[in-house]
Design a binder for these strands. Structure first.
Length: 404
RNA sequence: GGGGAGAUACCAAAGCGGCCAACUGGGGCAGACUGUAAAUCUGUUGUCGUAAGACUUCGCAGGUUCGAAUCCUGCUCUCCCCA
């Protein structure tokens, strides 16, 4: 295998990156790699506690994919060790430690999803439990002597939590060390991570130096801003687009991002060629509406294929723009000749979590049958042979009610 | 080891014996509007019940009281200050 010219590789690597520390070392590594015809080891550690991947994760995975395409060795580390301890980050609730079984299961679902981005045939998979699990207490003590407390609480998230009087467990200090130890173990050349990982990535460099290795280059990707346009994409903020989501949801959610995020999404989460980005930028200026629809289309296409993307586009146009009942609305069947309360019908469809919620929606005009708003919460329907009603519950739930 | 503060619904945060299913903000949901599931404005926001009402909810377990998120006891957890 021969590598692309260093400049060409760099152009691809730089797409979307926030920071490469230090860039000149990267250039040196690339030059040497090409000269010796030896791939670089590119490492990414993932935590299999929450196995649902979204576009935020895809930013880094896509970068990994680019390294694969450039011919480098891409190593995905499943953080089996850390997951079994249970990361208490966030609240004062201790997360239940995951069992070996759960870790395996989660890791598998993670990999299954990651496969839609990475080239599985070229992927090296490891689990850091293999080496971290072997360390004894003295090894850990020695490792922890390499970093000072002052250095540790420099970290943004720690200092913030400290200021906010939020608990920080001692073992959380060990996380960067564990992650850095992974780099030592694998002798990685490059480690990828989000900007929030900067500290951890740098610890890897330091530990490698202490070990007499050439330190890794740290490559930071931006944290993708979620569909709300402000916070980073995350499941807990519910501003995410999951890569496993249904085409219709994926399409709609993609459209809901604020306009000034369109370009960022193109750059970070789509597979459009780097060379085409300038043209896209212009399109966003001149025709944001269609640029955004194209983006939504591209995202759905990447994960579900072209046909699904077309269908999702149509679904969106029907339901949101024309407010019509879509072709793919689910059907529900009811007995004939019997007066059935709308409340019960909606409960049957699962479109509303409780009767209270349904009543509220009726009161506010959020429910309609055959395009007519229902205003009476005691409304009933009686089906006779062949009857069919189109029902809309809230903004997004459509159904066809049919006589049984 | 000593002293102090605190734990309230999805989150943040009021309430400190009945007027509390619990102020307020965020979030969510709905309506209007829109190229948009954006922004903005308005409304709404425990469960069951047609309703009256019933039930569950204020860290956990008990207790006092006609009546507790509010008082008492024990427990669990967290933070701060001092050593």
């Amino acid at each position: 295998m021969s590598f692309l010219a260093v400049d060409e590789q760099l152009e691809i690597i730089r797409r979307g990156t926030v920071e490469i520390v230090p860039e000149d070392e990267l250039i040196e590594k690339l030059k040497r790699s090409k000269k010796e015809n030896r791939p670089l080891k590119v490492k990414l550690g993932v935590d299999p506690t929450r196995p649902d991947l979204h576009l935020g994760h895809s930013v880094i995975l896509r970068k990994m994919r680019q390294f694969q395409d450039l011919g480098h060795e891409v190593i995905l580390i499943i953080g089996g060790f850390t997951a079994m301890i249970g990361d208490p980050t966030g609240q004062n609730k201790t997360r239940p430690p995951l069992s070996l079984e759960e870790v395996k299961k989660n890791a598998q679902t993670y990999i299954d999803q990651a496969k839609s981005i990475l080239d599985e045939s070229k992927l090296t998979l490891t689990n850091n439990n293999d080496w971290l699990g072997e360390m004894d207490f003295m090894d850990v003590v020695k490792l922890s002597s390499k970093l000072t407390v002052a250095r540790m609480i420099e970290r943004d998230d720690f200092s913030k939590r400290f200021e906010n009087n939020e608990p920080i467990s001692l073992h959380e200090f060990l996380y960067p060390l564990a992650q850095g130890q992974d780099s030592v173990h694998l002798k990685s050349d490059i480690e990828l991570g989000g900007t929030d990982q900067k500290f951890n990535l740098l610890v890897g460099r330091q530990l490698q130096k202490e070990d007499g290795q050439e330190p890794q280059v740290c490559l930071m990707m931006p944290l993708l801003v979620g569909t709300d346009g402000s916070a980073k994409m995350s499941k807990s903020y519910d501003n995410y687009i999951g890569i496993n989501e249904k085409p219709n949801d994926m399409y709609g959610k993609s459209l809901s991002i604020p306009d000034d995020l369109i370009y960022t999404y193109y750059e970070l989460v789509t597979d459009v060629e780097t060379a085409k980005l300038p043209a896209i930028k212009e399109k966003i200026e001149s025709d944001p509406r269609n640029a955004k629809h194209d983006l939504a289309f591209t995202i759905v296409r990447m994960y579900h294929g072209k046909d699904a993307a077309k269908a999702a586009k149509k679904h969106f146009e029907q339901t949101v723009i024309n407010k019509e009942v879509p072709d793919d609305a689910p059907e529900f069947f009811f007995e004939t000749g019997k007066e059935i309360r709308l409340l019960d019908i909606i409960a049957e469809t699962g479109f509303s979590p409780s009767n209270g919620e349904t009543k509220r929606m009726i009161k506010q005009g959020g429910i309609s049958i055959d395009d007519k708003k229902v205003t009476d919460k005691n409304h009933t329907l009686t089906f006779s042979e062949g009857d069919e009603f189109a029902i809309k519950v809230g903004k997004r739930n459509f159904g066809i009610l049919k006589a049984k």
